[in-house]
Amino acid sequence: MEGLDLLFSIYILVLAIFVGFEVITKVPTILHTPLMSGSNAISGITIVGSLVVAGMVADPARTILGVIALIMATINVVGGFMVTDRMLQMFKKKEEREA
């Protein structure tokens, strides 16, 4: 990655950081725990990288690293989204609880 390509990636990085700041500023305390585990699941996006590495026919050392990375990233993604959903489905208003 050189020159303009690199510059475009830096553009994306900087803009995404600003979006991240803006999106999160107004979260009520009640949702901090689910927010933490939900955003944590999103950081498992590295699963995409591990898929590429694990699927290459390369020397065994790289494949092993790739497969371990894939297992860890999948735990992060699947576990993270599921546990967040489990927490959020419990949040109910009074009417909903009695319904």
Partner: peptide, 27 residues
């Protein structure tokens, strides 16, 4: 994850990674 996105030249890693990086810092 965002740094790995630069290594692999993969924008979705850069975006998702920096989103989480920034939001985690705010939190």
């Amino acid at each position: 994850a965002a740094a790995t996105g630069f290594v692999l030249d993969n924008n979705v890693l850069i975006i998702a990674g920096s989103l989480v990086g920034a939001s985690g810092l705010i939190l």
